[in-house]
Amino acid sequence: MSQTTTFEQPNTGTWDGGNEPFKVSYGKLMMWFFLLSDAFTFAAFLTTYGLARHRHQAYEGTPEAFNFSTQWWPIPDKVFNAFPGFHGVDWPLAFVALMTMILILSSVTMVLAVEAGHRMDKNDVQKWLLWTILFGSMFLGCQAWEWSHFIAGTEEGMKLADGSVIHGANLIVNQYGPPLFADLFFFITGFHGTHVFSGVVLLILIFFNTVNGVYHRRGHYEMVEKVGLYWHFVDLVWVFVFTFFYLV
């Protein structure tokens, strides 16, 4: 019995675990380093995108005269100009703007959940987690629409020299430009979408834990903070994907 008591004594010495130089818990610190490693992965994707883009000719005519060709890298405004319910209407980047807003909004509701956790306000944590789950799912739905539209393509498609027409995109050929353009679209937005999906799953898990009072009994809502860090990182990655894939 006395042995157990000595074993449970916290280590307080500087060199045996008593020192906490970063003033954050182990879990949060490891989440930061995981996110750092995840940033490496996304940086690799963006490097690949930049190199592939440089290897292809840029379109040099006026934007009005632009047409899809495997000769040059497409202008993103001309590829991503569709909006659900507005078939055939040219609304460049409108849908991706909506997606960006949804994701930024979900980041805000996530911070609000973390803030409520600091105050031990169980009801507020539940409320804001639900909003975050809702916006995250909305983003995933938007991405599903974006993908299916990208894959199905437009009615005009791209005319080839032999008279045949390509509609939509797959990994081998696409109507928008060089094959690598569609490949990188699938890989980069797909990898980001997988992150969003994992985030929504984590959010649902911590929502159930919150409802069951797990964190309340534990005395802190740190798990919400850790998932929050992950969720903001996903938002951050989207900010970069948005710039380098849709704007530049």
Binding site: K23, V24, G228, L236, V239, F240, T243, L247
Partner: peptide, 26 residues
């Protein structure tokens, strides 16, 4: 575009991820 993106990244990481208010070491 890249400059504005870095601005956004600063606000997301600094405020939302709370990094601005962590220790210098972190």
């Amino acid at each position: 575009f890249i400059g504005l993106t870095l601005f956004k990244a600063f606000y997301i990481v600094g405020e939302f991820m709370h990094l601005k208010h962590e220790t210098k070491g972190l």
